[in-house]
Amino acid sequence: MSAVEAGVRDVTSRPRRLSTRFLRSELGLVFGRRRNQVGLVVLIGPPVLISIAVKSSASRPGRGAPDFFSSITENGLFVALAALTIEMALFLPLAVAAVSGDSVAGEASTGTLRYLLTVPVDRLRLLAVKYAGIVAFAFAATLVVTAAGVLMGVVLFGGGNLTLLSGSQIGFGAGLLRVLAAALYLGCGFAALGAVGLFVSTLTEQPIGATLATVIFSAASLIADSIPQVSWVHPYLITHNWTAFGDLFRSPIAWTGIEHGLYSAAGYIVVFFLAAWARFSTKDVTS
């Protein structure tokens, strides 16, 4: 043991500016946690259910069904889009809220926060790494839903050319690319929600409370978005532009909504990350 000690005597002498070790550790923590793994598996449920339900019902869906549903039997790729539409309202925000609400509050409630800070980990670096973990999970969740939808859809309904909402057709490869783009676009929206969750998480030592608050924030935004009397606030709502991913399936692609959504997401990320930083940088860690 003394040999080991002699070998590491000068270990503290050279701090490195950059290291991905902490980030990798954080990703391992987020994705290695049983709760989060189960969450990702649950997210696979809707695309599987949708595809089996549509396949087993003899008749084609009626006229009243949502856009993507009626198209499922024509091209399996639409399973992914239908699944994203369904999970966009609750399941995906819930998954992102669970991870983001837990980010700082979870470490505070177990007490590991004080040990990270005395290592020391700079508080800004801690927030940045925590947020990177949230973003990674947000995109992973969206991509898991999309991948499950594409897989089930193509297996049960086949691929082939994709008929766009405006009537024209594109090849399967181009269609797949647009589905992927839709998933990444939604991922940005959930990353923005994750920034809100990160901020709430710095306010409390109760991870469940932070998660609930984040879900409520997202739900309240959806509700406000459906009330025409407050239409002036709609463009500023975090969920307002999420449905714009459908614009990717028009010809030509209607970029306005997408652009708006990306700006909105960037705005939410900047504002709420800075708010989290403002709160966390001087916070007394008493847990």
Binding site: V11, T12, S13, R14, P15, R16, R17, S19, R21, F22, R24, S25, L29, R33, R34, T110, G111, T112, R114, Y115, L116, T118, V119, V121
Partner: peptide
């Protein structure tokens, strides 16, 4: 500080790995 605090579902060694990973030096 005020008693031990680690991640419940990680092993003792993995908990130390995490703290060591967080240390830039």
């Amino acid at each position: 500080v005020e008693g031990p605090a680690f991640h419940l579902y990680l092993s003792g060694r993995d908990n130390l790995r995490r703290l060591d990973a967080a240390d830039l030096r």
